[in-house]
Amino acid sequence: MSALDRQPDASTVAKQKRLAAREKRVLAGVGELSRFLEDLLRQGLATASATGYRTWDEMASRMVDAQAPGLARMVRDLGGVAHAGPDWQDNLLERIGRLHLLLEAYRRIESLDDDLASDVRSLVGFATRRDAVLARPAVHDTWWVLGRRLELQDNLSTARCWLWGEQTGRFALVLSFAAGGQPFDIGPAPGTRIEADLHFYPSAVPLRATIASSARRGRANRERAPNLFRSLREAWDDYRRALVRLPWIERFPMTLRGVVPSPVDESWRLQDAEHAIAMQPFGRDGWTLLAVSGGHPVDVCGEWNGAAFVPFGCFSEGGFATLARNPLYSEIAP
C-alpha cells in the first residue's frame, strides 16, 4: 500500500518539475515575443511586413520551441494578415494589440482571478486536461443543437458544435478533433435536442464544454424554444459584455430573433426593425436564408466571427433548417 502511495507521488513530482521547466521556457518566449513586437514598432511595420511571411514564420517557430503553440498560431496569423485585403493595416494593428495584451496578461498571471488565468494559459498554449474538466461540476440540461461546422485545416479536422440549454439558457461550444481524414465523432446533429451533462472549461466567459459520456441520443426539434432567440441589440450587448470580461474572444454564439436577410452588393446583411449586422454565409446559405425568409422576419442562429455573423441554422416551415453544411463531409438532410 505504501509503495503504491509513493509511486504516484514520484510521478507527480516529475510532472511538476516538467511543468515548471515549461513555464520557464514559455515565460522566456513571452519576453522574446514582446521585444520582437517592440522592435517591429520601432522600425515600422511597413518595413517588417515588406519582408513577408518569413519574419513571422521564423518567430512562430521560436514560439513552438518555447512550447507556446497558442502564441505560435497567433504570430503565424499575423503573417497572413499583413498585406491581405484593403484593411490589412487596421487588421494587423488589432491583432498585434490583442497579442500584446495577452503577453502582458501572462506576465501578470498571478494577479488574475482563476478563471481569467485559465483563459490566458490556454490562449498561450497550455492544454486543459479533459479529466480536469470532467472533474468540474456538471451542468445538466436539455441542450439544443444550434449548428455544427466541420473544418479541415493543416491536416486537422475540427468539428465545432454550438449548443444551448433549455433550462439554464447557457450556450456551449463542443469541439472535437481528428488528424487528417480519420473518422471521428462530430457531435450531435443540428436541429436535435440532447439530454446531457456538460462540463465547462474554466473561463471568464465559459463557452467551451465537453459532453459527459452519459448523453442520450438527440430528438428532432419541431417547435422553437420561446426564449432562445434575442433581439439583435440584446445579442450584440451580450457579446460586448463578454468582450469586457475576455478581450480575446474570437467567435461568439448569437441567436437572433426576427431578422430579415438581404443581399447588399456582393455581401449580405441581417436586420431587424432597429439594427443591422453584416453576414458572411457559407456557400449558397445566403440564398437559402433569403428563400426561407421570403423577406419576412426569421429566427436565425449562428456565430459572430469577429467581422460578421455566420448563420448555422434557422427555423422555417415548422422545422429547423440546417445551414453551413460542408461539402467535404456528406450529411443527411434533416
Binding site: E94, G97, W236, L243, P247, Q271, E274, A276
Partner: peptide, 14 residues
C-alpha cells in the same frame, strides 16, 4: 483594440 471592440456599435437598419 480592446476599447474599440467592446464599444463597437451596430449599424442602424435601413
Amino acid at each position: 483594440t480592446a476599447f474599440q471592440r467592446a464599444g463597437r456599435r451596430l449599424p442602424t437598419a435601413t
